[in-house]
Simulated scan of single mutants.
Amino acid sequence: MATLNYSIHERIPSVSEHKFIWESVGWGSINTEVSKGSLKNSLYGVVVTINDEPVGMGRIVGDDFMYFYIQDVAILPSFQGLGIGKEILEYLLTYIKRRRLDSGIAFVGLFASEGNDAFYEKYGFKNHSPHMTGMFRVFEN
């Protein structure tokens, strides 16, 4: 098997990269005016490219001090299972480890796509129910 030659860029995805990957992984369509503001307020991001074309992304939102939320970790379906997601997550977690105070604590949250729980569990993420319940609410038109 040939070696996969990809590049990792420590930057927030562009609106067009985000839209392309978001829609390619089946998360539906996205309003780019909304995503533009969301991306602008991200703390950190990673984009993976092959031949200058985006194939994966991940980013962090939060207060950049105590609370961090891993968001939009996605790899194009044809490149899944090749270790790209692992690389993205390692970059994101390294950023968080650098940002938190040595004497402090960092709360890191995420929502895993269906069937991806085991991937994140390898990195210490776990379901804390029934003592804690992850909840969210969506406001839409």
Rank of each mutant, 00 (worst) to 15 (best):
K36F: 00
T49G: 01
S29G: 00
V108S: 11
G56S: 09
A74D: 08
R98I: 10
S103A: 13
G83E: 02
R99C: 12
M66C: 14
E90N: 11
A74Q: 03
Y91W: 10
I30F: 06
R99K: 15
K97N: 14
L82K: 14
Y69A: 06
V34H: 12
E87G: 00
S42T: 08
G83M: 03
M57L: 12
W27T: 00
D52H: 10
I30N: 12
D64M: 05
I70A: 04
G26D: 04
L82A: 03
D52N: 13
K36T: 04
I84N: 06
S29Y: 01
D102Y: 14
V73P: 08
Y67K: 05
D63G: 09
F79I: 01
V55C: 03
I88G: 00
L92F: 09
G104S: 12
A106R: 13
M66W: 14
Y44R: 10
I105Y: 12
A74M: 09
S78H: 10
S35W: 00
R100W: 07
V108P: 06
Y67F: 14
D102Q: 14
Y67H: 13
Q80L: 01
E90H: 01
G104N: 10
I30Y: 00
V34F: 11
L92V: 06
D52T: 11
V61S: 12
V46M: 04
F65N: 14
G56N: 09
K40P: 00
K97L: 13
F65L: 12
G62K: 08
R100D: 06
V61T: 15
V46H: 07
E33V: 08
D63H: 05
G26A: 01
L82H: 06
V25N: 00
G62V: 07
L110F: 06
I50D: 02
G62F: 07
G62T: 08
G45M: 10
Y95I: 10
N31R: 07
R59L: 15
A106Q: 09
I96W: 11
I96D: 08
I105C: 13
P77H: 04
T49A: 09
Q71L: 02
S35K: 03
L39T: 07
I60T: 07
E53Q: 13
I105F: 11
A106C: 07
K97R: 13
Q71V: 02
N51C: 03
I84L: 10
